Amino acid sequence: MRRLVDEMMHSPSELIVLVGTWLILAPMVLDHGAADIAFIGWNDVIVGLAIVALAFLRVVIPAGTAPLSLVTMGLGAWLTAAPFVRGYDSAAPLATVNDIIVGCAVLALAAASYRTERAGGPRWR
């Protein structure tokens, strides 16, 4: 049972690493450069690198790193708001949809990661 609890603590952060990796690659795959707003793709790359780094630290050193999940949640919130704050929501609709979906996924997974550690494991035990 202890192994299952340990695996549950790692799973959200491992998924965040995958989502962050997609975010880094998305500007090249989705052609963010087609919009007139400068550096749309750079926002995704920089935020993606930060997300991957923080989530990787949570995977490697899970104990005592719950505050990193809060920072990751902040990055997810920024990613969700960035198209509207930076004004590329209508200029790059594909980038906007991607940022909102990825941002919401990061928010949810980081919240699950934070809650799992803070609760000492899943609630059902």
Rank of each mutant, 00 (worst) to 15 (best):
M1K: 11
M1H: 12
R2D: 00
L4Y: 03
L4C: 01
L4E: 09
D6E: 12
D6H: 00
D6L: 00
E7N: 09
E7Y: 03
E7M: 07
M9V: 02
P12R: 02
P12I: 06
P12M: 04
S13A: 14
S13P: 02
E14G: 06
E14L: 05
I16H: 09
I16E: 06
V17D: 03
L18D: 08
L18G: 15
V19Y: 08
W22M: 14
I24N: 07
I24E: 09
I24C: 11
L25E: 13
M28L: 15
M28D: 13
H32F: 15
G33V: 03
G33K: 02
G33E: 07
D36F: 08
D36L: 07
I37A: 12
F39I: 01
I40G: 01
G41V: 06
G41M: 09
G41T: 07
W42P: 04
N43C: 11
D44F: 12
V45Q: 09
V45S: 04
V47T: 14
L49M: 15
L49G: 15
L49E: 12
V52L: 09
V52E: 08
A53C: 11
L54K: 00
A55Y: 04
F56S: 15
F56M: 14
V60W: 01
I61V: 08
I61R: 00
I61G: 00
P62E: 08
A63H: 06
A66K: 06
A66Y: 01
A66P: 03
A66T: 11
P67A: 09
P67W: 02
P67M: 04
S69I: 01
S69Q: 04
S69N: 13
L70A: 12
T72Q: 01
T72E: 01
M73L: 15
M73D: 06
M73N: 09
M73E: 05
L75M: 15
L75N: 06
G76P: 07
G76I: 14
G76V: 13
A77V: 15
W78R: 07
L79D: 13
L79W: 12
T80H: 05
A81M: 15
P83A: 07
F84E: 08
V85D: 11
R86K: 11
R86G: 02
G87C: 12
Y88C: 06
D89H: 14
D89I: 02
D89V: 06
D89E: 15
P93M: 12
P93G: 10
L94W: 09
A95E: 04
A95D: 08
V97T: 14
N98T: 11
N98A: 10
D99K: 10
D99A: 14
I101T: 10
I101E: 02
G103R: 03
G103H: 07
C104I: 15
C104E: 14
A105R: 08
L107E: 10
A110Q: 01
A111N: 02
A112N: 09
Y114M: 10
Y114P: 00
R115K: 13
R115V: 14
R115N: 13
A119Q: 13
G121M: 04
G121R: 04
P122K: 03
P122G: 02
R123H: 12
R125Y: 12
R125P: 11
R125A: 07
